[in-house]
C-alpha cells in the first residue's frame, strides 16, 4: 500500500476549524458543520456517530472533496482532498452513491476501474467482495445488500490507504450486515485506515477502536470506544441491601462519585463514575450482597451526549 512507501507521515485525516454553511431559500444560512477540529492517524478504525442532521455526511463529503468547506481546512494524507482522491489514497462507500441500473456488476466495476491510471484489479476485487457469481447480473436486479457490496468493490479498486464508509449497512438485513463487517475486518487487517458513519451503535461498539461523536455540527466526544461508553453513564452498580443497610443509601447519595441512587425494596442501583469506591462501601461490613457491576451502554452515552448539545 502507498503509505508504507511514502516518506510523508501526515495523518490520514486532518480537519482544522471546518465549517460548512448552506444557503436556505428563506432565512439565514444553516451551519451544517460548525467548527470541527479532528485528526485521525493512519491505521485507526474510527466510528463517526451522530443523530440525523448532525453533519456527518457533510463532513465526510468535505473529506472526499465532494463539497468545498465554507471555512477551515481539510488534509487527507497531507494532500487536498481532490488530490488524495485522484491519487487513490482515499476512497469511499457513499450512502447515496448512485449506480447505473442498466449496467451489469462487472461493467460497473470495469467502468470505475478504467478511471484510475494504473490497471485496477477488476477480477480480484470482484472475488474479494463475493461478487464473482453476480458479475453478469444487471445492477437493477441486485438486492440492496448486493448493490452495497458493489459500492464497496468500487471503493477497493484504487487500493486506498483510507476508506470512508457512510452508513455502509443501511438497508441491509442481519446476515448481509454480518457478512459486510466480516469483509471489512479483513480489509482493516490489511492496514487501511477506516472511518465509518453509522446509526447502529452496536456496530461502532464492536468494530471501532475510537469513536468521534458529532451533534449540531460540532464534536461532542472523541476517544477510545470504552472511554466514550463510560464517559457519561459511568458504570452501574447493583446490589441487595442487607437488613440495616438503609443508612448506607444516604451516604451513597452524598458521595460525589454517585450520579444516581435508586432503591427498590432491598435492591439498590447506583450509577457512578467510581464503581470501585461504591463497591467497597457496599461490601464493607456486609451492608450488601449479590453485587453486580455493569458498564453503561453506548446507547446511553450517545443519547446523553447528543442531547446535551441540542439543548
Amino acid at each position: 500500500m502507498n503509505s508504507t512507501t511514502g516518506p510523508d507521515r501526515a495523518p490520514a485525516i486532518e480537519l482544522h476549524g471546518l465549517v460548512k454553511r448552506f444557503r436556505t431559500p428563506h432565512g439565514p444560512p444553516v451551519r451544517a458543520v460548525d467548527g470541527i477540529d479532528l485528526s485521525i492517524g493512519r491505521g485507526e478504525i474510527v466510528a463517526f456517530l451522530g443523530p440525523n442532521g448532525a453533519g456527518k455526511t457533510t463532513t465526510l463529503d468535505m473529506v472526499l472533496g465532494l463539497t468545498a468547506p465554507s471555512e477551515g481546512s481539510v488534509r487527507v494524507h497531507g494532500l487536498p482532498p481532490r488530490e488524495a482522491v485522484r491519487t487513490g489514497r482515499v476512497s469511499a462507500v457513499l450512502q447515496t452513491g448512485g449506480l447505473l441500473r442498466d449496467l451489469t456488476v462487472r461493467e460497473t466495476v470495469r467502468l470505475i476501474a478504467s478511471t484510475f491510471p494504473t490497471g485496477a484489479p477488476v477480477d480480484e476485487v470482484l472475488e474479494r467482495t463475493g461478487l464473482t457469481g453476480l458479475a453478469g447480473r444487471r445492477v437493477s436486479k441486485c438486492s440492496g445488500g448486493e448493490q452495497q457490496r458493489l459500492r464497496f468493490a468500487l471503493a477497493l479498486l484504487p487500493d486506498p490507504d483510507l476508506l470512508i464508509l457512510d452508513e455502509p449497512t443501511a438497508g441491509m438485513d442481519v446476515t448481509a450486515r454480518r457478512d459486510f463487517w466480516a469483509t471489512m475486518h479483513e480489509e482493516a487487517g490489511r492496514g487501511r485506515t477506516v472511518v465509518f458513519a453509522t446509526h447502529y451503535l452496536e456496530e461502532a461498539d464492536r468494530f471501532a477502536r475510537r469513536i468521534v461523536m458529532v451533534a449540531g455540527g460540532r464534536l461532542v466526544a472523541d476517544g477510545p470506544t470504552d472511554q466514550i461508553r463510560s464517559r457519561v453513564s459511568g458504570r452501574t452498580v447493583r446490589a441487595r441491601l442487607s437488613p440495616g443497610g438503609d443508612r448506607l443509601v444516604g451516604e451513597l447519595r452524598d458521595h460525589p462519585a454517585c450520579l444516581r441512587v435508586e432503591v427498590d425494596g432491598d435492591r439498590v442501583e447506583v450509577q457512578t463514575t467510581d464503581s470501585d469506591a461504591v463497591a467497597r462501601m457496599l461490601l464493607l461490613g456486609h451492608a450488601a450482597s449479590d453485587l453486580e457491576i455493569t458498564s453503561g451502554s453506548l446507547d446511553h452515552a450517545f443519547t446523553a451526549l447528543t442531547q446535551e448539545v441540542s439543548r
Binding site: S91, G97, L100, T115
Partner: peptide
C-alpha cells in the same frame, strides 16, 4: 439525470474530471 441521481458522487470518488 445520472449525475444528479448519485452517479456524479460516485464519479467524484475517481480521478475522472468533469471535463473527462
Amino acid at each position: 439525470v445520472e449525475r444528479m441521481q448519485g452517479w456524479g458522487r460516485q464519479l467524484g470518488l475517481t480521478p475522472m474530471s468533469d471535463a473527462g
